[in-house]
Design a protein around this nucleic acid. Structure first.
Length: 144
DNA sequence: GCCAACGTTGGC
DNA sequence: GCCAACGTTGGC
């Protein structure tokens, strides 16, 4: 089991829209980057991830869980592209901004800082716990 | 809206 | 297989 971070521009697909999908979850389609796709292929059911608003907001706003393994991306016929489904799990009580992450020495190696343009990123467990702590989640969800 | 960073494409 | 041109992402 692992932790991840999903980036979305809120005017294309926002946290609110994700939450509105409820348990049904939503296909994380549209990824056209091999590294991001490979990350999705590595995901397991129940893996947890941060939901990050890029461009506008630039903050971690919620927590999601993987609800379907990687499968063909329905938005393209190109069989190279696959995606997982994710569902909303919890709000961040206090959204954690990119500036907050950059200002925290413990998060200096986080992909959000070092791999700015990667849209689906791995998150280490200590990073997961630290961002949850910053976001006001006293009892952060973990996956073993 | 600009532009730096960086991933992808395509000519050779 | 190299690398210049091009396109996209995303912070500012």
């Amino acid at each position: 089991m692992a932790y991840w971070l999903f980036k979305s521009e809120p005017f294309k697909w926002s946290w609110q829209m994700q939450k509105d999908q409820g348990e049904a979850g939503e296909e994380w389609d549209g990824v056209r980057n091999y590294q991001a796709r490979n990350n999705m292929r590595a995901m397991e059911i129940g893996d947890l991830g941060f939901f990050y608003h890029s461009n506008k907001g630039k903050e971690v706003v919620g927590i999601v869980a993987v609800s379907a393994l990687a499968h063909p991306d329905s938005t393209t016929d190109d069989e190279r592209w696959e995606c997982v489904d994710i569902k909303a799990v919890a709000d961040m009580p206090e959204p954690v901004t990119l500036a907050d992450v950059k200002a925290n020495e413990k998060l200096a190696d986080m992909a959000l800082v070092t791999s700015m343009r990667l849209s689906v990123q791995p998150v280490k467990k200590d990073e997961w716990l630290e961002v949850c702590r910053m976001g006001g989640l006293s009892d952060p969800p973990t996956n073993g």
